[in-house]
Nucleic acid binder design. Structure first.
Lengths: 217, 217, 217, 217
DNA sequence: CATGAATGAGACTTCATTCAT
DNA sequence: CATGAATGAAGTCTCATTCAT
């Protein structure tokens, strides 16, 4: 039961985790510039010096926090969508449109549970502007080929209209982010999933009436 | 008629304009917290005290700047789309889908010309979070009924699929914002229009292949 | 009586003077690193920000203080020795050996009155080491040609032994500094003049018995 | 009796030596306040705690370093000058003036080889000011009687002019220090010996032309 | 009404010292 | 006895805001 898993690594890691978790909360709540590192240290139950020992300076602490957030998101979505299956299995099971929907909803779920992550991304841009490449976009780039691949398969399978795959990837991701950010700004952090859901459905099926003989009938 | 364009007020107004314009540039480039009010005063060619006399404090200066940005955007889009015509005329001329497309592109055009506006919106959230309602969302709310109305007409005319109008409005606006922000973050401020264009087209027509009957046939 | 001399320049200059004077005292008493700029500000009766406004940062404040010290020394010695006369007049009046003696004693007098200056020079070296050229050595370089010139004249007049002028200049200045520093370190800041006096006399006349004929006779 | 040269003590002594040697280098290069004890510990290959165990605190470590420097100097000069001979033998061999010259040059040689020692002395004053009696002056005091004695003998032997012995001792030592410090500050650490040599020669023989009888002849 | 010098609260960061391991 | 992670006091510097001129 009590397997005693590497005590040394664990203790140091625990402390780092604690600092990052609290940093996430405080940065999200107060904003980067408005955050006093002392507060984070206090909440994490460590001295201010310890925070600096581990992360160097406030900027690096923030960047580490941003990375931490995105990684948690990545893990969550991976687990939620994949559930130990392979991509072909998932496509076979769901079909491409439904799979895309599931992926987006999995992301939305995470952000609804941890809306601080969105605030952190906004803070990151607000503070660093062009000087760094946004953490969550790095995640997006890393997974872009996956998304593009799925879309291509969807087109090949005749489930998606034959469109430019990259533009479609951008559109679906931009839509997700638009929903998340607007949702946050409107103070509806607890309705992110449904907002994303309805938006994705509209994107998948289109707003325009498909001709459509049937309508006039 | 209006023979004396009150020179005094005008001079004061000019100064305010100058301050706001420079504030916009500096806030967008440096971020709210990283901006020294002195710099804005210098660029505007006035003393620091004057800035404070006109705007009270740094926060109010920023908020005035944000409002200034959004109003400029509003004017631009209005003019670009309406061109002295009435809404019914526009719909008759373009049809609803094309009109929606035009509206979105007009907005995108403005933001591509003045990407600082996007940065300002990000700064606004980053600094004030829940404490104020975002300036650009106020614009969105004000024009929501217009957008909703157009969509309803589209549905009634059989040009749009019969969907929840408010959800569709949200989706199209979220998509716009997603494109703008992601475009900015990716350092592609000069491709905002084409990004919005391809995304809107996808949203209008949908990703999923329609009347698949024909495909399988 | 009350001539009202340029009030603007004077007021700003007065404040700078006040800051420098107090900086000199505090730096000399506490050492550069051990000095809190706040203390200097308090003593000068200004805010900390004012000190930074005028001098940029602590290092520049210190360097300005060092320069201030050396300039005061320079003025003092100039006035004390020259007394409105020209160099030839002085030489004619005193002869070279006596003039050298007077110069050294004038310097020594200043340092005895303001021993902080010596401490400042020590601090300068202690803090900046090779990174800057010592302020008081710059003064020394500037006046080197003068000293060398006097010595050359002394040799030409047969009052000084024909030695290497530059080495002699170095020796006499090094002796001065050795006296000043050692005097300070031994806590005999109020005996600097007499220490210098006796040392200079020994250097002028030499330690070795001049054979010499007369002695053995 | 003491056949086992206590290996434990020796090992500890080795560590102390290593710490002191490295402390000397770092203190001389970085200055007292700018030195991070961690750096010394790293260079010495021990933990920071060990440094504190051995020396108590940073100040005591520095003072120990200063003492270490002066002792090394003392040993060097002793060995270089005395070479297993007694004082009378040396005087007989060289005569007093030449012996004085040798002593000064021996000191200068050491400082030229280890100019850090000079920096350490400057640091000592810069940091501690009146609070401690300078380490190298303690050495000077200890050997003062020796120097005074030699001078007295020189006078008695008719080799030196009959001057105040203590003043002469001070002058010659001050001259040495003036040369060392000025040489260092001018960035001529590798010319200390020649600087001292020429200065001492001038002090011994004087600047003023002697027996001017011959001149007028 | 405009100005910009002065202010000082506030936040980052360093590093001497301690102490649990 | 050695270590080095943790601590927090202390000091630098910035900049929003004020106010005398």
């Amino acid at each position: 039961m009590c397997e005693k898993p590497e005590p040394i690594t664990t203790k140091a890691a625990k402390k780092q985790q604690s600092i990052l978790t609290n940093a996430m909360m405080v940065f999200a709540k107060e904003g980067f510039r408005n955050t006093d590192v002392q507060i984070i240290a206090d909440l994490a139950g460590v001295g201010k010096g310890t925070v600096y020992r581990h992360f160097g300076n406030k900027e690096q602490l923030f960047l580490a926090t941003a990375k931490f957030c995105v990684e948690r998101m990545s893990q969550y979505a991976q687990q939620k969508v994949m559930q130990e299956k392979t991509l072909p299995e998932l496509i076979e099971e769901n079909g491409v449109p439904l799979l895309l929907r599931k992926i987006m909803l999995a992301c939305a779920e995470f952000y609804q549970k941890h809306p601080q992550t969105i605030e952190i991304m906004i803070q990151e841009r607000a503070e660093f502007r062009e000087s760094i490449y946004p953490t969550h976009l790095m995640f997006r780039e890393e997974n872009r080929s996956g998304l593009d691949g799925i879309m291509q398969i969807g087109i090949d399978r005749g489930e998606l209209r034959p469109t430019n795959v990259m533009q479609a990837s951008d559109a679906i991701t931009d839509l997700l982010w638009g929903c998340l950010i607007s949702g946050c700004l409107q103070g509806q952090k607890n309705k992110l999933v449904e907002r994303v859901e309805s938006a994705i459905d509209l994107l998948l099926n289109g707003l325009v009436a498909t001709d459509r003989s049937s309508n006039t009938e």
